[in-house]
Write a protein that binds this DNA or RNA. Sequence first.
DNA 1: CGGATCCACCGACGCTCAAG
DNA 2: CTTGAGCGTCGGTGGATCCG
Length: 268
Amino acid sequence: LDLWLIATFPALNLDIDDYPAIKEYLEQFLPKLNQTGEPFIDKNDEKQKTRKKTGNKWFETQDQIAYWNEFNKEKIVWKRIGSILKFAYDDKKNYCLDSTCIATGENIKYIMGYLNSKISKYYLSKEAPRTGTGDLIISVQALEPNPIPQISKEQQKPFETLVDYILFLKAQDLKFHGIKYELMPVYFEQIIDGMVYELYFEEILKEADKDIIQYLGELPEIENLSTDEQKMNIIENIFNKLHDNGHKVKNHLFYMDTIEEIKIIEGK
DNA sequence: CGGATCCACCGACGCTCAAG
DNA sequence: CTTGAGCGTCGGTGGATCCG
């Protein structure tokens, strides 16, 4: 299945006459497509408005989007406004609308993992501006001052690998596999939450013998494995090991909210 | 069960601001 | 002036839930 995206960004300076099939298709939506903001009467005698007034041509999008090529890069995508914060990873060149934001650049998987962590959500819920109805506005302005711990590529590795595990698991039909498999991505997310706490409160956690990063052990990469079965086997083995009640990671995570700072962040 | 009601969310709007 | 980024708001929608 081939899907084509028609993206008539003004910044592309397209001549619609070079694309007769697209022109013919879009013309059926005139005069609605005009960007004059003027009202008009449609076929059913209903009063309608053309699109908002801009200097752009009738077949073009409303916003300039000179940065359109950023959509083709590895990126984080999130909904700008809402009560539930989710930061998604995309390397499939998805284009998205004004109701979302994207971020491209370095360290994408680590930053995505961080932004989805409890500590980041706590920070945003305190610091980000809100709409009149109380929804959070997670704009560029809200994210820029976010104190994301800057760590080396080497330190980012376990974050990235766990992100890969979670992305793989969430792409599977976990209900079909069973309840244990549904728990796996949830637990790996908890581990990342704990790792981010450790970046912030390393001294406190080590003092209380509740740190986890040094106990994670080897987390094998899955991206070069050829079959989903191989990936699932690796991930399940790691899960079995880290989720065992005798394992320090499980034990330390379970009691992490005895730390006062973490208790506050988790609202307990 | 079907209709009424609610509510979170999406897409789009109108606007400001910056730079040239 | 034009181009371009992006902020905060709002109406409509559709899924979820309630209720008779």
